[in-house]
């Protein structure tokens, strides 16, 4: 475990906690896409199937449980908690996210390292994570309104992805056999989506305008 990886994980955890805090204390999920949250729940559920079969460390198992628990809690809050559900932007959050799920599943069946059940689902979770933020970005563009907490949530998520890339560069130079093309390319695509968003976020902030 290097410092980039740890910082990335912590940033990731804070991003989820910020979102849960917003939903739990303000009882509002305005500006948050439930589609993106459902995609993350699927990502974690399919990636962490190995939680029962391979033990890495207490840290790893603990963090996996945190991400599984938090992503499913957020979806539950947004779909079934009455007060929170009332604040959900249903008319604007119309991204057809099941197409993403289907495309990523097909891609995972075609491009993977090993054709086993766990490996294909693990690869599927990488593909899906890369594009899971799309419904959230589309929702932000539609409502053209971004509150501080939602902005911080996306900012922390972007930071987490950036730190993971530094972690891979570090591991590539310090560990033998650390070559993982699928992980790297999907990670890069995901980070570029955030970078693109922040570019426009920064421009609109600089011009003191709403997001365009």
């Amino acid at each position: 475990m290097n410092i980039f990886r740890l910082a990335g994980d912590m940033t990731h955890m804070f991003s989820v906690l910020v979102l849960l805090l917003k939903i739990h204390t303000i009882k509002s999920c305005a500006g948050v896409s439930v589609k993106t949250q459902e995609l993350y729940a699927i990502v974690f559920a399919t990636r962490y199937l190995d939680i029962f079969t391979s033990f890495v460390s207490i840290y790893n198992t603990f963090m996996k449980l945190v991400f599984l628990g938090s992503s499913f809690s957020i979806v539950w809050y947004m779909r079934y908690h009455k007060a929170v559900h009332r604040t959900y932007d249903r008319e604007q959050d119309t991204f057809r996210h099941w197409f993403l799920v289907l495309s990523c599943l097909l891609l995972a069946l075609l491009i993977h390292e090993k054709f086993t059940f766990l490996e294909v689902l693990w690869t599927f979770s990488l593909y899906l994570e890369a594009v899971a933020i799309l419904p959230q970005l589309v929702l932000l563009q539609r409502t053209r309104n971004i509150d501080n907490l939602t902005g911080q949530y996306i900012f922390l998520l972007g930071g987490y992805r950036g730190l993971y890339i530094l972690n891979w560069i570090y591991r590539y130079f310090t560990e033998p056999h650390f070559v993982h093309w699928i992980t790297w390319i999907t990670g890069l695509v995901q980070t570029l989506l955030y970078a693109d968003f922040f570019y426009y976020y920064f421009l609109s902030w600089k011009n003191n305008k709403k997001l365009n």
Binding site: H12, S57, P176, V179, H180, T183
Partner: peptide, 10 residues
Amino acid sequence: PKDGDVKDEL
């Protein structure tokens, strides 16, 4: 997981 295995990540 062995050295260089990306599956020890989250």
